[in-house]
Nucleic acid binder design. Structure first.
Length: 421
RNA sequence: GUGGGUAUAGUUCAGUGGUCAGAGCGCCAGAUUGUGGCUCUGGAUGUCGUGGGUUCAACUCCCACUACCCACCCCA
């Protein structure tokens, strides 16, 4: 028996219509804010992620699906959405258009080789948005407001927005020096991993979940206190925008994102569950990424939202879902001889825009009714018998049990009028 | 990558070292030969996760592997 590879999941009809509903809600919300869809390849040259995401991140070091193709090119299945979009922006010279460039991607497969568990697959799907060429924090504020609206529309509440600023090229070197000094003083109290990574990227230590490291991190110098004037102003304006939009937020000076490209604003949207906060979404500003990948000096802001996690939380919270799609009419053949006319009536109903189905198993009438009941159809149309001789068929309303003989020529109109005629 | 748990019918799960095995739900059929939901009756289905070992005998004990679930790590 061949199984789906570890960490992958089939999306079955019982769920696929929910995905479609979530996708539609996302599309509408993105379109309201002037974002258009972009679709980029599932795989890219490995170098894109090494340069974009950062060679020292865990993602690049141990979580990428990388392989050589038949032309000996190193290929990687995308581990996140932004790098590919930036590559496309540069390659297709979207930066030459009037700015900003606002794009979103939907249901984008993302791959990370790690140990799967609930809400964490090796292949998962993201909804993401990116706004290029917009240096003002209205860009990130707009994304957060949009996200809150989107999640509320889907039925999720109890969200918390955590924000932070991690500075820019100007303010970071100074801060890193201070932080490293502090960390070195306490190096014997930090976990081995943190001792290793503090040289590489001292910010990561602040994000460590080890209790002792957390204690050290709590008293560490905060980057917020070392921001340059430009970054402080940016952050202050950003907070002001969130306040005036009535978005409740919390400054969490310990947010450090797992990707190296972020600058200034970083944010996370956390779902408060019974267990603990689950990150539904993470994002931020990346003012150097476009240039680092060979494009012009152009800033960007964006986020990625895990689609599986959204659906998981919707189910956990028992959020009311839209009704599953179903045919309106099931066409029953009274006897086997009536199957051809049942088939052609079904076809005609569909041509009139009415979703309909008929028997394909040559089942008894009773079995057809049972099946129609399982499909949860509104009507059953019985084809054959005396009614057929009169050019009519019997239509049963499955909810009320009412039956009515109707001329075949009138059936579509009758159903389209909601049964009143 | 590390640790813990699980693996038996479509599904949720029982079960005992000794005739290769059950229940609820679901599925199919009949009661109701032109009619669903309720009820009743009957029926089908399993290489008991894979491979090896112990034993006269293994679904049951041991080992390995794989997958799933959970936690750590990290994140979406």
């Amino acid at each position: 028996m061949i199984q789906a590879p570890k960490g992958t999941k089939d999306i079955l009809p019982e769920d696929s219509y929910l995905w479609q509903w979530i996708e539609e809600t996302m599309r509408n919300e993105a379109a309201l804010a002037g974002y258009s869809e972009i679709r980029t390849p599932v795989f890219e040259h490995t170098e894109l992620f090494q340069r974009g995401v950062g060679g020292t991140t865990d993602i690049v070091q141990k979580e990428m699906y990388t392989f050589l193709d038949k032309g000996e090119r190193s290929i990687t299945l995308k581990p996140e959405g932004t790098a590919g979009v930036v590559r496309a922006l540069i390659e297709n010279r979207l930066y030459a258009n009037a700015q900003p460039t606002k794009v979103y991607y939907l249901n984008c497969p993302v791959f990370r080789y790690e140990n799967p568990q609930s809400g964490r697959l090796r292949e998962h799907h993201q909804f993401g948005m990116e706004c290029f060429g917009a240096p003002q924090p209205t860009a990130e504020a707009e994304l957060i407001v949009l996200l809150i609206n989107l999640l509320n529309k889907l039925g999720l509440s109890g969200l918390s927005v955590n924000i932070n600023s991690i500075g820019c090229k100007k303010c970071r070197p100074n801060y890193y020096k201070k932080l490293l000094e502090y960390l070195k003083e306490h190096s014997d109290e930090l976990c081995p991993l943190c001792n290793e990574r503090m040289e590489r990227n001292p910010l990561r230590v602040l994000d460590c979940k080890e209790e002792k490291c957390g204690r050290i991190a709590k008293n560490a110098p905060l980057i917020l206190e070392y921001l340059c004037d430009d970054c402080s102003e940016h952050f202050a304006f950003f907070k002001q925008l969130l306040q005036s939009s009535s978005v409740p937020f919390k400054v969490d000076p310990f947010i450090v994102r797992g990707l190296d490209y972020y600058t200034k604003t970083v944010f996370e949207i956390i779902m408060q569950t019974d267990r603990e906060g689950l990150a539904l979404c993470g994002g931020g500003r990346y003012d150097y990424l476009v240039e680092e990948l060979g494009g012009p000096d152009m800033c960007g802001v964006g986020f990625g939202l895990g689609m599986e996690r959204i659906l998981m939380e919707l189910k956990n919270k028992n959020v009311p879902f839209p009704e599953a799609p179903k045919p309106t009419v099931y066409v029953v053949n009274i006897s086997k001889e009536d199957l051809p006319s049942a088939f052609s009536i079904t076809r005609e109903l569909r041509n009139s825009g009415i979703s309909a189905d008929c028997d394909h198993l040559s089942r008894s009438m009773r079995a057809q009714f049972k099946f129609a009941n399982k499909l949860n159809v509104d009507y059953v149309l019985m084809v054959g018998g005396d009614e057929a001789e009169r050019g009519a068929a019997r239509l049963r309303n499955m909810a009320t049990g009412e039956e009515k003989e109707i001329l075949l020529s009138d059936i579509s109109e009758y159903i389209l009028n909601g049964g009143e005629k």
